[in-house]
Lab assay of single mutants.
Amino acid sequence: MTGIVKWFNADKGFGFITPDDGSKDVFVHFSAIQNDGYKSLDEGQKVSFTIESGAKGPAAGNVTSL
């Protein structure tokens, strides 16, 4: 699925993605970002991701920028 990064705190390594389908915002951890180098996201960035079952509920996985 796709969405827009609502916010991401690079110091803490997590944030939230707002899915394009209008569903509830999804937690994203830096370890789910699939790019080389520094793993961070920018507010407003368009991303593709999967929904994984995290310890505290749904979380984004396999996050790639579009």
Rank of each mutant, 00 (worst) to 15 (best):
P58H: 10
Q45E: 13
K39R: 12
S65E: 13
D25T: 06
K56Y: 15
N62R: 09
A60D: 01
Q34C: 13
A10H: 13
S40L: 11
F49L: 04
I17G: 00
G22F: 06
S23L: 07
F14T: 03
F30Q: 09
G54D: 12
S23E: 07
I17T: 00
D25P: 07
F49Y: 11
Y38L: 12
A55F: 13
K12V: 09
G57P: 07
D21T: 07
V26W: 03
H29N: 04
G44D: 04
P58V: 12
A55Q: 12
D42C: 15
D36P: 13
H29T: 04
D42W: 14
S65V: 15
T2E: 06
V26S: 01
S53A: 13
A60C: 05
A32K: 08
A55P: 15
G15Y: 02
T18P: 00
V28A: 03
T50D: 08
G22I: 03
H29E: 04
I17K: 00
K46Y: 10
G37V: 09
D36K: 14
T64M: 13
T18K: 14
I4K: 11
S65K: 15
G57C: 07
F14N: 02
Q45R: 06
K46D: 04
N62M: 14
V63Q: 01
F14E: 03
V63Y: 01
E52F: 09
V47P: 00
V5G: 00
A59R: 15
G22W: 06
K56I: 11
N9V: 05
I33V: 09
V5N: 01
G22D: 05
G15K: 00
F49V: 01
T50S: 10
G61K: 15
G22M: 07
A10P: 14
A59W: 12
K46T: 08
M1V: 10
V47I: 05
V47Q: 00
F8W: 15
F16W: 10
K6H: 07
L66W: 08
Q34K: 14
F49H: 01
V63N: 01
G13H: 04
N62K: 12
T64R: 13
F30V: 12
G54C: 09
G54L: 07
G54V: 06
F8N: 01
T50N: 08
K46C: 10
G37R: 09
G54S: 15
F27G: 01
A32Y: 04
S65M: 15
N62F: 11
T2S: 08
W7M: 05
K46L: 12
F49M: 04
I4C: 09
E52T: 13
A60W: 02
K56L: 10
G61E: 10
F27M: 04
T50Y: 09
K56W: 14
P58D: 11
P19W: 04
T2R: 07
K6C: 06
I51M: 11
F14S: 03
M1N: 09
V26N: 01
K24D: 14
S53C: 14
Q45T: 13
D21W: 07
S40V: 12
V47G: 00
W7D: 02
D11Q: 13
F8Y: 11
S53I: 12
A55T: 14
V28F: 12
I17D: 00
V5Y: 01
K46N: 07
L41G: 01
K39C: 08
G61M: 15
V28M: 05
S31K: 09
E43F: 14
K56R: 14
G44C: 06
N62P: 03
N9L: 08
F30K: 12
G37Q: 10
F30D: 03
D20H: 07
W7S: 04
D36F: 10
A32D: 06
S40D: 06
V26L: 10
I17C: 01
D25I: 06
Y38K: 10
D20F: 08
V5M: 03
G22Q: 07
G15V: 02
V5R: 00
K12N: 05
D42Q: 15
I4S: 09
A60Y: 02
D11V: 15
S40G: 12
D25W: 04
F16M: 07
L41I: 07
I4E: 06
A55V: 12
P19M: 06
A32Q: 10
D11T: 15
K56V: 09
I4V: 13
G37T: 10
A60E: 01
E52L: 14
A59E: 14
V26E: 01
N35L: 11
G13E: 02
D21C: 08
A60S: 03
A59P: 02
F8R: 00
I51S: 04
G22R: 06
A59H: 15
Q34P: 04
N62V: 08
D42S: 14
P19R: 04
N35Y: 12
D36C: 14
A60K: 01
T2Q: 09
S40P: 07
M1I: 10
S65R: 12
H29R: 04
A10K: 14
I17N: 00
V26P: 00
G54M: 10
V63P: 01
I17Y: 00
G15R: 00
K6P: 01
D11I: 14
V5P: 00
S31I: 05
T64C: 13
I17M: 02
G57I: 05
S31D: 04
K6G: 03
A59F: 15
A60R: 01
F8T: 02
F27T: 02
F27W: 07
T64L: 15
T50F: 10
N9Q: 06
T18D: 03
F30E: 07
D20G: 05
S40H: 11
S65D: 09
A10V: 13
I51G: 03
T18G: 05
F14D: 01
G54W: 11
G22K: 07
D42Y: 15
T64Y: 12
F49E: 00
